[in-house]
């Protein structure tokens, strides 16, 4: 390996690592707030990228039908619940959020020349279609069993993951797609050339991480999420709705997932099932951080990115084996250093 290749691989590793870091943060967030190990995180990556690609082809994405269907299901469940509790005044809000908004989105998409829109508008529309899936999935799959053991929530996550994978194949077919870069061209930087898209990814990841930091540190909703993560019962006693916290964390996770997919789809071809492995690599990072520490999770995710990129040079066929085997020494290290006290659960 000469210096040139090392730089190139480093650039690859950094780009992928930045994406894994974003996903790792979302995973830690969701786990801390809801105790859900969010295996379907990766599907949002694929859904985001493929929805954007469909919009750019000037077609209505099938994910639109999914939010219409899930929205109807949520409206039916929440509506019935509100009526049972004699809170009919909540109905307009429930119907507006879960039925009217997706329907409005449908009319908007159906009446617009999607392919002709500027990229920014296409990206925003793709996010508008995919992100609501997050809170809707929380409402339907997790909220009814929010107090269940972590293990049950994990099995539900795996079930949601396979449903989304199956739907992904149905919606987008087996073919992969790439979307155009945010801006074409490369930047000469000393001995190396950087693609503009790489710079976009790094910049947006950094901005998102800082934004999340500010959100958790400064905003009242961020503080509510942190409170829920520390102590669910205590947070509820302080008037924080754990349901709201759950939906909010899933919204953030969906946003981060879908946007990550949109960021990397110009540099890698994404298939309906590509998200899973990408999400799991974020997981390896999150586990390095013990599913608790945001900075360590982000650093771990960068490590995964570099390991993947350099191992693809030395032993390309064994790339995945090496990345996923990394988890073994990490777990070993954690199990030897974590003092596991027999506290009351």
């Amino acid at each position: 390996m000469d210096f040139q290749i090392a730089l190139l691989l480093g650039q690859d590793g950094l780009t992928n690592g930045a994406i894994y870091a974003l996903l790792a943060l979302a995973l830690v967030l969701v786990f801390a707030v809801t105790r859900v190990i969010f295996i379907p995180q990766g599907e949002f990556v694929a859904y985001g990228a493929l929805t954007l690609a469909t919009l750019q082809a000037g077609q209505l994405p099938a994910t639109l039908w999914l939010i219409l269907a899930l929205g109807a299901a949520v409206a039916a469940l929440d509506g019935a619940q509100a009526l049972r509790h004699g809170a009919a005044r909540k109905l307009p809000r429930i119907l507006a959020l879960n039925l009217a908004v997706p329907l409005a989105l449908w009319f908007l998409l159906a009446s617009t020349d999607l392919a002709g829109l500027p990229l920014v508008a296409q990206v925003l529309l793709a996010l508008a279609v995919v992100v609501p899936l997050g809170p809707m999935i929380y409402r339907l799959a997790y909220q009814p069993i929010a107090e269940a053991p972590v293990l049950i929530l994990l099995i539900v996550s795996v079930a949601v993951h396979v449903v989304l994978i199956g739907l992904g194949l149905l919606f987008f077919g087996a073919e992969g797609t790439r979307t155009p870069a945010f801006s074409e061209g490369t930047l000469e930087l000393g001995a190396t050339t950087l693609q503009y898209q790489t710079l976009w990814i790094l910049a947006i990841s950094a901005i998102l991480i800082v934004a999340l930091y500010a959100f958790f540190g400064r905003s009242i909703y961020g503080k509510a999420l942190r409170a829920t993560a520390l102590n669910r019962t205590g947070a509820r006693l302080m008037g924080i709705s754990t349901t709201m916290a759950g939906k909010l964390s899933f919204t953030l996770a969906a946003l981060i997932g879908a946007f990550s997919g949109i960021l990397i789809s110009p540099i890698t071809t994404l298939y309906y099932d590509s998200g899973f492995l990408i999400g799991l690599k974020g997981f390896v990072g999150a586990i390095i951080g013990g599913l608790a520490s945001y900075p360590v999770a982000a650093a771990g995710a960068l490590l995964v990115g570099f390991l993947e990129s350099y191992s693809s040079f030395y032993a390309s066929a064994f790339k995945e084996v090496i990345v996923f085997t990394l988890i073994i020494p990490v777990l070993l290290w954690r199990s030897l250093t974590t003092h596991h006290s027999e506290e009351d659960e």
Binding site: V150, L154, L280, F324, I327, I328, L331, L332, S335
Partner: peptide
Amino acid sequence: GFITLRMGGHYLPLGTIAWGIS
């Protein structure tokens, strides 16, 4: 089992996912 079971219950399933893929 030795490396995952000493920690919280969710490390074993995550460890087995990684091991299954590798």
